[in-house]
Design a protein around this nucleic acid. Sequence first.
DNA 1: ATTCTCACCTGTTAGC
DNA 2: TGCTAACAGGTGAGAA
Length: 273
Amino acid sequence: MPELPEVETVVKGLNSEVAGLTIKSVPYVSAHLLKRDRALRKLEGEGFDHFSRRGKFIIGHLMSGKRVLLHLRMSGRILVEENHRRRTKHDHLVLAFEDSTRRLIFRDVRKFGIFEWVGDEQQKALDQLGPEATEITSSSLRELLRSSSRPVKALLLDQHKIAGLGNIYVDEALYRSRIHPLTSCQQITNAETGRLARAIRYILRTAISKMGTTFDSYSGVNGNPGEYASYLRVYGQEGGICPRCKTEIVKITVVGRGTHFCPECQKLKSSIV
DNA sequence: ATTCTCACCTGTTAGC
DNA sequence: TGCTAACAGGTGAGAA
């Protein structure tokens, strides 16, 4: 679910709703979060200075200089509730603040998400990320493409190469730049590289301005859905028609992921170089 | 080193 | 209608 635009939206929400607040108590931490980080209860007394994003990670910067790392993975959500409702089945962390009736809730149906202190292991994960997808340039992308023969979609999903893209925006960017998702990286022309880099930046910028895509369960910290879903051209549109050429959008599997594209606009080149 | 497959969990939906 | 299997937006460990 949450890719770069959704995470960016959550970070903005946290900066506006939670930055500056001091944690009064930790009313609830689930066993599975504590298993990963025994010290989570020590958030009590810490204050949030601000939040930032790196790829799909959320970093909470505390006034003490310490940091916490959050990742929503597939189904994680961060909610800020003004008048706390009863904890739901899938809430794994609840923070209460001083001088505020607000509560921060980390909810995650599938329990893949993380919420933990930044230590060596977490810092290493951050250090291994590729450049931000929002800042990818034609030349930096060309460099990445040159070194690989994987399908271009695999490269774009690899956070060590480019950070922030996920299944939705990769499909949309490949559609916009008219590249078949199975195209080998090395077969991508300079013209296509330019189109792809531009498409990635454009789509992410637009999706951020629409507060992301709510396909199923994602929402911002206030529970508001993202509005980009109605702009999707291929993702989830199988059976629908291509807005450019009216050909039917198809769905296949690429590197184990559902992959949507227009077979007319995004033709696979012959393997003859 | 790079790349692929599987596992992590739960809910929803396609298919019989 | 009811059951089972497959699938879902992400990533890391371990294997090839």
